[in-house]
Amino acid sequence: MGTRWSATIVAPPPGVQTAIQGVLTHILAQMSHWERCSQLSQINAAAPGGWHGIAPEFIHVMGVALDIAARSDGAFDPAIGALVDLWGFGPPGPREDAPSDAAIDAARSAAGPGAIELDAPPAPPAPRPPRAARPVGDRQGPCRRRGRDAVARPWLR
């Protein structure tokens, strides 16, 4: 996800670093826009409008991201990947100059409510109606939280 990780554990059990790395590698294989082979990167490289199968964890994170977007009236937008890339903060890397107004307008048109459709099965305890099919964005906030939770879960029983 374009970052590093560290864990401070008092009296760590044997193999904890390998276990943590395994959990994070699993999540990156699904949701990293920095990893070319991730499910997210494959979806982003596909033609718009198609449906793609994604892992249950990815479905959960997308549901959280879309919920945050709705609750924040779009202040958090998981579909801003084109804008992130355009300004030089995504996988394509930095840019030397500012993007044109036309390029900004085109990237904005791919973002916002309804840009991502999620057809997920209802999950207890609160079934959610289907939402929006082209995750072109940056969901690193909810994705990082998912990583933290997944790493901690085995040792918090």
Rank of each mutant, 00 (worst) to 15 (best):
residue 58 F to M: 15
residue 46 A to F: 15
residue 37 C to P: 09
residue 76 F to M: 12
residue 96 E to C: 06
residue 84 V to G: 00
residue 99 P to F: 04
residue 141 G to S: 06
residue 109 S to V: 03
residue 54 I to W: 12
residue 127 P to C: 08
residue 13 P to W: 09
residue 105 D to S: 12
residue 66 L to M: 10
residue 140 Q to Y: 03
residue 48 P to T: 13
residue 74 G to C: 08
residue 2 G to F: 09
residue 156 L to Q: 08
residue 2 G to W: 07
residue 49 G to K: 15
residue 80 I to W: 00
residue 6 S to F: 09
residue 36 R to D: 12
residue 39 Q to K: 06
residue 40 L to A: 11
residue 126 A to S: 03
residue 141 G to C: 05
residue 105 D to Y: 03
residue 89 F to T: 00
residue 10 V to Y: 12
residue 111 A to K: 06
residue 88 G to D: 04
residue 106 A to T: 07
residue 130 P to D: 02
residue 80 I to L: 06
residue 26 H to Y: 12
residue 13 P to I: 03
residue 124 P to I: 06
residue 18 T to V: 14
residue 126 A to T: 01
residue 68 I to F: 05
residue 97 D to G: 05
residue 43 I to H: 09
residue 152 A to T: 00
residue 35 E to W: 13
residue 146 R to Y: 08
residue 70 A to T: 02
residue 83 L to D: 02
residue 45 A to D: 13
residue 86 L to C: 03
residue 87 W to S: 00
residue 56 P to L: 11
residue 56 P to A: 14
residue 108 R to F: 03
residue 10 V to E: 13
residue 75 A to R: 08
residue 112 G to A: 07
residue 45 A to R: 14
residue 61 V to P: 12
residue 82 A to D: 02
residue 9 I to A: 12
residue 137 G to F: 05
residue 38 S to P: 13
residue 26 H to A: 15
residue 153 R to H: 08
residue 100 S to N: 04
residue 33 H to E: 07
residue 77 D to E: 06
residue 69 A to M: 14
residue 148 R to E: 08
residue 51 W to E: 08
residue 97 D to N: 07
residue 54 I to P: 08
residue 108 R to W: 04
residue 5 W to C: 07
residue 65 A to V: 05
residue 67 D to W: 06
residue 115 A to D: 00
residue 106 A to H: 02
residue 154 P to I: 01
residue 32 S to V: 09
residue 53 G to C: 09
residue 30 Q to L: 14
residue 18 T to A: 15
residue 154 P to C: 04
residue 86 L to V: 02
residue 61 V to E: 06
residue 57 E to V: 13
residue 3 T to M: 08
residue 144 R to V: 04
residue 69 A to N: 01
residue 101 D to A: 14
residue 93 G to F: 02
residue 30 Q to F: 11
residue 101 D to Q: 11
residue 141 G to I: 07
residue 97 D to L: 11
residue 62 M to W: 10
residue 100 S to M: 02
residue 44 N to I: 14
residue 42 Q to T: 10
residue 108 R to D: 00
residue 143 C to I: 09
residue 111 A to V: 10
residue 146 R to S: 04
residue 2 G to M: 04
residue 132 A to P: 01
residue 137 G to N: 03
residue 58 F to V: 10
residue 137 G to P: 07
residue 147 G to M: 12
residue 101 D to M: 08
residue 68 I to K: 00
residue 110 A to C: 07
